[in-house]
C-alpha cells in the first residue's frame, strides 16, 4: 500500500494543488478567496509547495500593487496524480 504524500495530505496545500491542477495560473487573491484561508497561512503553504518544487511562484507588479501568481509544475502534477491514485487505493480498501 502506497503512503499518502504528507506534503499534499494537508487541507490547505491540497486545496491549493487541486485549484492549480484546474487552472493554468492563479493569483494570490484568487487562491485566498477559493480556499477561504488567511493571507499569512496561505503564504506559508505556498512557500512549502514551492520549496518542494510542486508549484512555481512568480512575483510581479500591476501598477503599484504587487501580484503573486502560482502555477503547478510537472513535478507537482505528477505528485498530485500519485496522491489521487494512493487515495483511490485507500478508499477501495475501506469498501472491501
Amino acid at each position: 500500500m502506497r503512503e499518502l504524500n504528507p506534503l499534499l495530505h494537508s487541507q490547505l496545500r491540497l486545496g491549493v494543488m487541486s485549484i492549480l491542477m484546474n487552472v493554468e495560473e492563479a493569483d494570490f487573491v484568487y487562491l485566498k478567496e477559493k480556499t477561504e484561508s488567511t493571507a499569512g497561512n496561505l503564504s506559508v503553504q505556498l512557500d512549502k509547495l514551492s520549496a518542494a518544487g510542486y508549484i512555481s511562484v512568480k512575483k510581479g507588479f500591476v501598477g503599484k500593487k504587487t501580484r503573486t501568481t502560482a502555477r503547478i509544475t510537472e513535478k507537482g502534477r505528477n505528485a498530485f496524480v500519485e496522491y489521487v491514485d494512493a487515495l483511490k487505493q485507500y478508499i477501495s480498501m475501506q469498501y472491501k
Binding site: 487541507q11 496545500r13 486545496g15 478508499i91
Partner: peptide, 15 residues
C-alpha cells in the same frame, strides 16, 4: 481552510 492533517474522505471532499 487551515494547515491541518485530514482524513482520506476529507481529501476527496477538498479535491
Amino acid at each position: 481552510m487551515e494547515e491541518r492533517k485530514i482524513t482520506e474522505a476529507e481529501s476527496i471532499e477538498i479535491i
